[in-house]
Design a protein around this nucleic acid. Structure first.
Lengths: 252, 252
DNA sequence: ATCTAACGTATCATTATATGATATGTGCGA
DNA sequence: TCGCACATATCATATAATGATACGTTAGAT
């Protein structure tokens, strides 16, 4: 079928099973065999067997009446295992909790994952859209403060490549799609170590981020804070949020 | 090998791949091929191929120097997909946020998963042990308030069976292992709709839970709050926390 | 510095195992 | 009532997973 990427030490059936898992996302929350086949591009029979296997193994719940498959609690258990494996989360968590209590606003631990930022930990303090209140969401790194502040730590060449090549997606009508503008913002972030972006993922949302550097000095994550533009103006953000954010990022 | 559970619509390779994934937990955060083979009981070569496949597919990160495998960010993405598929989480989240802000203490959304309670959403407000601050952790339902309050909604027979048969594990030296005592607590919870437990998972931790009923009247989840016994006595818990908890649970 | 053991990596023939076409069963809307 | 779309079950065939084996590499001990 799909040209085996590598032979003999690549188990195609397993890879196909993973495609079933990945078919589920924020739009596809429960799927029938038929639509599962459409999404994955796999054969009808294959999907039947794969999905059944995943069901028997407890990875997929199956509604006995609608016959629709859904992610099971096992998916959360995997996340739990992930959390223990990521040393950054363990180190950051207590400090993020303190931070969120101090400033009373939503704070996140944002990690770089390829060209995306993925929110590893989220401590929501204010009601917001669902997507912004659960961990695991990923968005193009260039678009948001957390990503910019990380890219800003890259060596010159790599930084330019990232700005030029990395994925960009208009999430709101005001998402910045102009790479030159993004380059400026990243340049500024390189100087200051922080970044502030507006209306990138949600309208009237302000994102503030400070970088966390790995042992090699390269940014690998960021402490991120998301507030409403209605309640916070630039000046207050800089005096009442930024300092604490920086402290937290440095402490991690 | 392991007698095929069902034939012809069960893909053994996929099942084995899942065993690799599940080998990772809070104790095994990064694993070599050899230990992976030991844990899963799979053949050396099988593990090699399976792990490589998972790596190529982006489900496992591989440290290029130590050759150790670790869960990848994909595990968080799966969790994200799970969150969208669980209607309870979406409905509960904004209310949980309000609740956590109001009482200033850690609140959780606890769901029943087999004989366990799994924390689907956690909003930590105070520093605590790592296990209590990330979602996905699961603990025996009978041991904790959230589980008791759910079991309490079961019909007589089922309730007794659960109390008699369900898993129990001594997590702290003071975890209640006496099923008769648990039966009493569940009986009380059946009357009041809430439960309070002490020292079950962490010492000096008090757990307070109110049940959330499904459309059939059967409890399927609970709003749970965890506070320190040092800071809260029974009276204050009942007057300053319980009412809000109940409101929140009812509203969901 | 040398040896050895443990582990990761690579190769290969063999057949068990996954495959996908087909057939049967079931529920829903016209 | 009919017919369609989907889930479920069966089966012969050859593909694709298997596990034994052999090679490389690293690290610890002597």
């Amino acid at each position: 079928m799909t040209k085996p990427k590598q032979n003999t030490l690549f188990v195609a059936s397993l890879a196909k099973g993973l495609r079933i898992l990945r078919a589920f996302d924020h739009t596809n929350t429960e799927l029938s065999l038929a639509t599962l086949a459409k999404i994955t591009g796999l054969d009808k029979s294959a999907v039947q067997r794969l999905a059944n296997t995943l069901h028997v193994e407890g990875m997929l719940d199956k509604d006995p009446v609608t016959r629709l498959y859904r992610p099971s609690h096992a998916w959360l258990r995997l996340a739990y295992a992930y959390y223990w494996s990521d040393p950054l989360v363990a180190r950051a968590m207590p400090k993020l909790i303190d931070l969120s209590q101090r400033i009373g606003e939503t704070v996140n631990l944002a990690e770089l994952s390829g060209q995306d930022i993925i929110y590893a930990a989220r401590l929501p303090c204010k009601r917001t859209i669902f997507a912004a209140s659960v961990p695991g969401r990923s968005v193009p790194a260039l678009s948001i403060s957390a990503g910019q502040v990380i890219v800003a730590t890259f060596p010159q060449q790599e930084r330019e490549d990232a700005i030029h090549d990395w994925r960009l997606r208009a999430q709101t009508p005001r998402t910045t799609m102009d790479r030159a503008k993004i380059a400026d913002q990243i340049e500024a972030a390189a100087q200051t170590g922080y970044a502030i972006t507006y209306d990138q993922m949600i309208l009237d949302e302000v994102g503030i981020a400070c970088v966390i550097r790995g042992p090699d000095g390269r940014g690998c994550a960021a402490v991120h804070c998301s507030v409403s533009a209605h309640h916070w103006d630039d000046a207050r953000i800089r005096t009442e949020i930024l300092p604490w954010l920086q402290d937290t990022a440095n402490a991690i």
